[in-house]
């Protein structure tokens, strides 16, 4: 199976990464060689195998629903690329 340019552009869109045509062509070459390598997995019969999702196969621990950190708004906003007092600011999303 090979990944064509159209698919590359679709994946880029899903990934929220803008790419130009030159970059898309590079990625087409790289991803195809990587997937050729990945597809050796098809040689293995896994019909009766249970997937391994995590090594620590324990259930998540429960904890009390208690606030532990308070009044850290300023600390959190400090790293924001754009802010307005108490909020993160993004380009306008409603007309």
């Amino acid at each position: 199976m090979s990944i064509n340019l159209k698919t590359i552009k679709h994946i880029a869109k899903l990934s929220r990464i803008s790419i130009d045509d030159k970059k898309a062509k590079e990625l087409e070459k790289d991803l195809n060689s990587i997937f050729e390598f990945i597809e050796t997995l098809n040689k293995v019969d896994t019909k009766k195998v249970e997937p391994l999702t995590s090594i620590a196969e324990t259930s998540l621990k429960l904890r009390g629903d208690v606030v532990k950190t308070k009044n850290i708004r300023e600390k959190i906003l400090k790293n924001s690329p754009d802010e307005n007092k108490d909020f993160f600011v993004v380009p306008k999303v409603v007309e």
Partner: peptide
């Protein structure tokens, strides 16, 4: 690019 780290420009949220 919203809460921390590098942010570029864009004409709308998605392109940003």
């Amino acid at each position: 690019g919203v809460k921390y780290g590098y942010r570029s420009q864009g004409e709308n949220l998605i392109s940003m």
